[in-house]
Design a protein around this nucleic acid. Structure first.
Lengths: 196, 196
DNA sequence: ACGATCCTCTACCAATTGGTAGAGAGAAGT
DNA sequence: ACTTCTCTCTACCAATTGGTAGAGGATCGT
């Protein structure tokens, strides 16, 4: 058995929701894309909203897994930050819709934010603690760890996902471009984080 | 005369498109909000898409104006960066939908990207040149000016607009929070940009 | 007084939306 | 042979969508 219908629906839905957005995605086009009928989707999920929530849940746990795998190693210091940035970038290249979905969910008017943050809250907590620990140990510039986390998040996710802005700036979006972007981003973050 | 109907439509459309997004905004609800009929909107604009484009045009030129006013002063160095960040923040607090609209337009699947970048391209060019000049003068850490601009853009726009992420991180979104966020962001950017 | 222009309205419309009801096919257990 | 369960389908539906056609009321210059 290749892949269950349910999984295929979730895959297609992630792609659609992650690029077009929730409102712009219709169950009909989603079904047509899969070569099935809309009612088949509604057999597996009670509503469109439910499909979205299932997609968010799966995407969130995928994301969390990526972070936890890295966190466990515990290299420490700026190398740890670098390792995580690299992972995020690999994810952004391999499954761009995943970060696109995050962008969709974190939009002001969105529902399902609580669903996402239920998954990510522990990660954020751990990240904040990590930053605080590194600061205390003198391995990182001292600042408000919460705000610093926000800055880091914005920078990494932005550089990884703002492909259209890059195009507007005239930056190539080839694979080589992604590597260059990542390198420059890491230099940027190291400079911002290094203790004085 | 208070405000022309056309302007009122554009105001409401900016708010709606900037928060709910293009697809999730219907002409009917937009009209109801304004106490007029949908057909009145379609008198001023040939289609929903045309409303969106007009909103994008106006928002873009508002944004460009903010940057140009600052660029003309030409303080130079990191103080100039700080001044611009402050302006972006003031904008984000006063008219959050404006940056929300940018986020909407720069989404992967969006139309009207070219419309936006037609406005912003000169700004980006000027900003890149500015960074390059500062690097050459030894007032800024040397790096790829294009990539650096992308990092700066991501960080500033992210910190200014990712309110829901902040909520998920447990950061207060009060006005005082905005000031604290701005200060921390500026410290972050100064650290990232200062020459070694 | 009169036409023209500007503006907002009522009345529709075809297409699409998310969702319901239930038929039927197939496999599995009894 | 029988029921039961799983799955996908056809057939509909009410509501909403963006958009068209055109009436009617102002306000204007003449």
């Amino acid at each position: 058995m290749a892949e269950s219908t349910r999984e295929r629906i979730l895959d297609a839905a992630l792609r659609a929701f992650g690029t077009e957005g929730f409102a712009a995605t219709s169950l009909d086009t989603l079904a047509t894309e899969l070569g099935i009928r809309k009612q088949t989707i509604l057999y597996y999920f009670p509503s469109k909203q439910a499909v979205f929530e299932a997609v968010v849940d799966r995407a969130a746990s995928d994301l969390v897994k990526v972070f936890e795998e890295q966190a466990v190693r515990g290299i420490g210091g700026l190398d740890q930050v670098e390792a995580i940035v690299k992972r995020v970038f690999r994810l952004a290249v391999r499954r761009p819709q995943l970060l696109g979905l995050i962008r969709e969910v974190t939009r002001p008017g969105s529902l399902s934010i609580d669903r996402l943050s239920a998954h990510t809250a522990p990660i954020f907590d751990r990240a904040r603690d990590f930053l605080q620990r590194e600061m205390n140990a003198g391995r990182m510039r001292v600042s408000d760890s919460e705000m610093l986390l926000l800055s880091l998040y914005s920078t990494v996710v932005g550089v990884a996902t703002e492909l259209e802005v890059q195009r507007a700036m005239g930056i190539s979006d080839s694979l080589r471009g992604a590597v260059a972007r990542r390198q420059e981003l890491i230099r940027f973050l190291r400079a911002a984080l290094e203790p004085v």
